[in-house]
Design a protein around this nucleic acid. Sequence first.
RNA 1: GGACCCUUAGCUCAGUUGGCUAGAGCGCGUCAUUGACGUUGACGAGGUCGGAGGUUCAAGUCCUCCAGGGUCCACCA
Length: 849
Amino acid sequence: MKLAKAYDPNQFEPNIYAMWETSGAFNPSPTGEPYSIIMPPPNANGNLHIGHALTINLEDILARYYRMKGRSVVYIPGADHAGFETWVVYERELARAGKSRFDFSREQLYSQVWNYVDGQRGNMELQLRALGTSASWDNLVFTLDKKVIDTVHQTFKKLWDDKLIYRGERIVNYCTVHETSFADIEVVHKNEKGKLWKIAYPMLDHIGEIVIATTRPETMLGDVALAVHPDDERYKKLVGTRVQLPLTDREIPVIADEYVDKDYGTGVVKITPGHDPNDFEIGKRHELEIRNVIDNSGRMINVPTQYISMTAEDARKRVLAALKAEELLRGEETIQHAVGHCYKCDSVIQPLVKDQWFLNTKPLAERAKQALQSGEISFTPSSRKRVLIQYLDNLRDWNLSRQIPWGIPIPAFQNENDSSDWIFDERVDEETIDVNGTTYRREEDTFDTWFSSGQWPFITTDALSGGELSKYYPTDVMETGVDLLDRWVSRMIMLGLYMTDKIPFKHVYMHGMVLDEKGQKMSKSKGNVINPMEMIASYGSDALRLGIVASRSAGQDQAFSTGNIVAGRNFCNKLWNISRFIQDKLGENYQPRAPKPKSLADHWITRELNQAITDIDSYIADYRFAEASDTMYHAVWDSVADWYVESSKDNLNPGMLAWVLETSLRIAHPFAPFVTETIWQTLTWKDNLLMSDKWPETIEYEDISASQFERLQALVTEFRYVMAELPGNKRYPLLYQTDSLIADNTDLIKRLSQASEVTSVDQARGLRLAASGREAWLDVDADTLYEHQANLEMRLAEARQYAQKLEDRLSNEAYVSKAPEALVDQTKKELADKQDLIERLAHELEVIA
RNA sequence: GGACCCUUAGCUCAGUUGGCUAGAGCGCGUCAUUGACGUUGACGAGGUCGGAGGUUCAAGUCCUCCAGGGUCCACCA
């Protein structure tokens, strides 16, 4: 087979992927110890972004590596219905068609969005294939598959029976644009400038007044009390009295509550249980009425007529104006405070009282915390574990209800005649059901997406039903972005432990964000988004994979580097050409044979590759992807291509050449699957898939021979260095006296050093390659020799300086007595070597002079 | 208000338990080269590891403080 000079990834990648997929190589092998990774399911409706490329790459490196190590690997892919995300997109489509969600039933909307997503879904999966994902497609799970819904309902039932689920009136985070509530974690808090207004509430005697401070004057229309701290001397006597609520005809009491901070504002807080979480709590403690004055769309209700139907924003202006007119404003100051925003549309989140489903997270969080503290689950980077524990400590109850149709329905029904009577039932397709003669009406809300995502590990592996994949639960590693630590990782641990009594995964690896080339966060609005598919089109999938993992450490945000991708592309080409050379030398009819190191180069490359194999093993075990990839890169490029292939041109050892090529391909495969498999398929003596083949094993070599090759390298490097320093014609002969290492390797030295001749002489002349430590000379004339004098002087000075440093170290009593003996011995040897060098260089200088 | 992280070569970044003259990719300079590869080869320049203290025989690595940058969490009205 004739191979093109340069590797063209686009020509091979799609076919190679198809070959893998049709061969069944992505499915777990029937034998071997299980190893499992679950892919964080990408949005079925979207395109992959560069962050996905990183995630998939890291996971795929592990999957391919452990597969080659003989483990029974399952890498389970997924597709996410991305409830709210997709809903927002679809609602925009509806608006474009002049329709709204209120024109359809839940079933109609659900099936419309289903069809919409179904039409898009293939894109994302094709993109995963373009990345080379070795996922087990037969086991793909969509987050709205029946088994997901069934399991989520089962979990809900168990929580219900354990009385951890409750329905209650609580303050929820509500987006009045999208008309749905959110979990606390979904709200984006921003520090913003706001105003703190001081407002006087007149006493009933119309003489005195109490001044309160608030950032949201419009909510005063829903006030039901004022609160002061019980120990606040200023207000103590007012507790129990009543004040006039301005702009209304209502009177409200003054109460005392520990929550109030005497030192903030005026020390008096207006209590609006309908629109503030703290006030809601205080209201409960004091059995105060809840007055809702803002509705789901953000408009005023239950207020004096002039404010009815105004937006909260307008109402604020009107209220302030009215207060001013009545001379009740007592000043304002600008403050910095946190304001909640919708993470999608950025509008201000309204705290509203809603009757919704909540999960009591306390017991779940406690158990998750124990699993973390006991070390059952480990983290890379390890510091994230502490962050997660801190999060679990402060966790509040979780609002599971979402008012959007695109999601898993909450399987609960309400008695038509008794609003407090709720029952669990899975017949969510029916609007009403009949139970023992009583009619129940279904809950229209759906679950928070993270409630189902939090169950992903045991759902995808069928851990509850004990299916075939259940042996892969708990999974070995959960790899995801640092941003999902609390909203996803925490929930998987909590719900996993709760439902299966096992941790969902043994290790969590968190990667940082991929920033743009300037270190800025990528966003569509900034227009700095890097599309992984464009990178693949330009450089190839392997190049993207190699480039994105290079120099990247866990949990750390890092800028994208096109230079690294280019380096990856070049590496693939290097590998391609190594194989071209070796295959050319082996010929079409090469018969496989056991590798037997013979030449010095053979022994040396064996040692180098053996070392690379074991280094990569330990780096991957430590999740040090960049170091593993770097080790592979330099073993292949520096050792194999630059030294071994060059050396082989004079001394062919077919068995070794084949072993070196195979080993290079094997160690590179997890990092660059396409090019390695492409080459593997061109090997005449192989008829299997590299991806299903084995991780290489080390073979025997002689250390003495390997070290001798290293001495030759030192000679060659010194020769090249001196040549580069010398002016004029660069091709000098190399002369040597009694040096058997040189005598035995004249052809090799000649080739590697570009010497015109390597000749044995009786009488040395020219420039001695002093630093190489060999009896070798460059045959140059006196003038050229003189040119080199300055260089020798410089090197001598450097050597002396360093020797002095070593001497100082050794003359330090404390160092000799306290440092490890091996280190001291090493220092002594180093000094001796350095002194030898100094002697040789000095002697050489004398000769010149 | 809490917590975490970052500051190392012109650029983007590695550098595990403190210990060989601090590394990579890209960029830069000099030179080379008609068959494995210009997506190349050889050689080289370039860093007092943000600053100041401290611990230690030994600090880029550990501790304290300071400066600058970033991220996450948070119901102070």
